[in-house]
């Protein structure tokens, strides 16, 4: 009789575990979505750019190691002011020297075709440069990035004053001021952005 009861109880508990598992699934979804969103928030990378970066990284690294490309994980970790790019890819097999050399040569040949002047430069640099220059979208996002960091305090207090004094005036004025601010932001931003990318690059090199 007791056994019968515990059996029943286990079944019931099992049922509830199933329900919990379902919730774990949605938790997984949440974690993955959050990872992507935070990555976007912390950089100026749109989803398309992230994909591009991923595939370029894979191209780069698979010259040296054979990897599970689908399992590549990119993560940006923020530690105070420092941002680090953490990259994790399961390595299937180490390539032997001949393979590596062949891959490097193949790529160098390709590059020589594409652009004779750039052959002297490092592979990494090229990868990142195309990333920076290519996309118009990234520029737009760049303007907006700074508010998170340094600008917030100054901009906030400025605009408070503006609001008090100019609320009643036509909106043209405030628009002009907005664009003035923006020019400053742009220039500052590019530098901070480059810094971020350098950090990412350094991290990359370490790996």
């Amino acid at each position: 009789m007791n056994d019968l009861f515990t059996n029943l109880y286990n079944k019931v508990v099992g049922f509830f575990h199933k329900v919990e598992n379902e919730e774990e699934n949605s938790k997984e979804i949440a974690c993955n979505r959050l990872r992507v969103v935070l990555m976007q928030d912390r950089t100026n990378l749109t989803p398309e750019l992230l994909d591009k970066m991923r595939s370029e990284l894979i191209d780069l690294l698979s010259k040296y190691l054979e990897m599970d490309k689908d399992a590549l994980e990119l993560n940006l970790e923020q530690d105070g002011d420092q941002m680090a790019l953490a990259l994790s890819i399961p390595v299937i097999r180490a390539k032997d020297e001949a393979e590596i050399e062949a891959a490097i040569k193949a790529q160098e040949a390709e590059k020589a075709k594409e652009d004779a002047e750039k052959t002297s430069e490092d592979d990494d640099d090229d990868d990142f440069e195309t990333d920076e220059g290519d996309d118009e979208n990234s520029d737009e996002d760049e303007d907006s990035e700074t508010d998170n960091a340094d600008d917030e305090i100054t901009e906030g207090s400025q605009s408070d004053n503006e609001d008090n004094e100019e609320d009643t005036e036509a909106s043209d004025d405030s628009e002009n001021e907005d664009s003035d601010n923006k020019v400053e932001e742009d220039s500052e931003d590019e530098t901070s952005d480059n810094e971020d990318k350098k950090k990412a690059k350094n991290k990359q090199n370490k790996k």
């Binding site: 907006s144 508010d147 998170n148 917030e152 901009e155 906030g156 605009s159 609320d167 909106s171």
Partner: peptide
Amino acid sequence: AAQTRDKTAVTEEQ
């Protein structure tokens, strides 16, 4: 909304 701007990026009129 823009994720990287603050509340002053858009005015009431706009």
